[in-house]
Amino acid sequence: MSLEGKVALVTGASRGIGQAIAHALAAQGAIVVGTATSDAGAASIAEKLSAAGCQGTGMKLDVRDPASVSEVLERIASEYAAPAILVNNAGITADNLLMRMKDDEWDDVISTNLGSVYRLSKAVLRGMTKARWGRIICISSVVAGMGNGGQSNYAAAKAGMEGFARALAREVGSRGITVNAVAPGFIDTDMTRALNDNQRSVMLEQIPLGRLGQAEEIAAVVAFLAGEPAGYITGATIPVNGGMFMG
């Protein structure tokens, strides 16, 4: 298996896309540390990995808090090894029309979705530069490129991730580290299940493939980017959206 023995850190891994990514990496032989915001979430990640016969565990992490980030990184290094793969997946939405948006709706989304990418990536780079190998993968969104009314905060954070990936890809390319983003379209998760039938049918009309994506279809692309065969891809954003936005 291609990721045998490599430690992979996946943020926001208790459900949805993050959970699928954790399992896809573990299926390739990686030792996966999935993070969640609560102890219960972390325990559930550990349980599911172990039920699937995979190596790894869950840890509680607040991606907005630098102290929490360094604590988790220390724990990973002492229990396993420094992460060779980082998947920045943790994210939230706080949708609102800009004219009604509150400061905390803006700040929370930027700090959780984009600030986390800064903090986590910085924390893993020392190990990766020493190893002369690393994979940083950011989970963006189709709205980064396409825009979406009511999501100026979310779209700004996601577009920020993609710019971050391009800049960092140039910084650390000489050390064998690649930095990429994956931009999912509408995926069948709790986030999209909250939509009503009307919103759903309007959305499906915009998707050439005529269906929502599955979390596993995002995870497969992340697992590919994490592996050796993707070693010549860096600074890229890979769209996985059923054709709803072709940039």
Partner: peptide, 11 residues
């Protein structure tokens, strides 16, 4: 050395 080399050297 480039700038990244110097950071790694300090590490």
């Amino acid at each position: 050395a480039d700038s990244l080399d110097t950071v790694e050297l300090v590490m």
